[in-house]
Amino acid sequence: MTGYILKRLLSAIPVLFGITVIVFLIMAMIPGDPALAILGAYATPENVEKINRDLGLDAPLVARYFIWLGNMLTGDFGTSFSLNRPVIDEVLDRFGATLLLAGTSFILCAILGIAAGVVSAARQYGWADKGITFAVLLGISIPSFFLGMMMILIFAVELRWFPVSGMRMAYGGGGFADVANHLVMPAIALAVVATGVVARLSRSAMLEVLRQDFIRTARAKGVGEGRVIWGHALRAAMVSIIPVLGIQAGFVLSGAVYIEMVFQWPGVGRMLVDAILKRDILLVQGGVVFVAACYVLFNIAVDVAQSLLDPRIKT
């Protein structure tokens, strides 16, 4: 097992490398003098000179990439000019909030999505199936930001169950109850689309599995229907559900940006949007690389989970 994890970690190195290349190339598309582009409104002569020196911006493209990569490997993601603070500090401060939001949503979408898909498959063409299928269709069609706004209207303004916004975690305020109270609505709003996708896929994976011969064997043994569905069938269906969960984790992690805007959540997504609007290129670059790298690592965990579940995968 340890060997397998190591192998997967090693295989992630070229992917991480590729990610930095892609981000670098995208940012290199910015027309004009890179120093001016990066500094934008902050392009004082001293700043231009400093940044040219720090990032080797007058060097050729390839050299610039390696300087940038080398800096990142030593933990130096550059300095945000709009915030006047190291990029990595800002990203780390914000990432906790995003992780809390996206993590909660991910768990919600995994549990609810799989449960809905299983029930739907087990009651194929019954009322539960029809209801779930419709709810799923609605869920994957509604823009998460619109859903978030409607939830604020209904549950925060009308019913006053939850606060509208004002999550303070990133700035050191609020205890567990406060955080949890602020988390409910954004986490649900973010989870809805992913839940729909997971439910859809779980349903078809279950239908596929339920026709297999080993399900008939379980029934022939006298195993009860509950255990056949939630044990034998779901276990086998998980093999095709887990990769989808991996993809949905990416959607939840990056889709958090909308929800962070709607609920004023102090996460990386909102930071990125602000940075884009202020043309703070280094902050965008650092934030994107950091989040993408975390996602790559998360996908290794998904692979490991898959290999634990399926003994047929060679570890």
Partner: peptide, 15 residues
């Protein structure tokens, strides 16, 4: 390997 929307944000940031 990128989370989908993140890549779109990066492109908009550049353009």
């Amino acid at each position: 390997a990128f989370p989908y929307i993140l890549l779109a944000l990066a492109i908009v940031a550049a353009l």
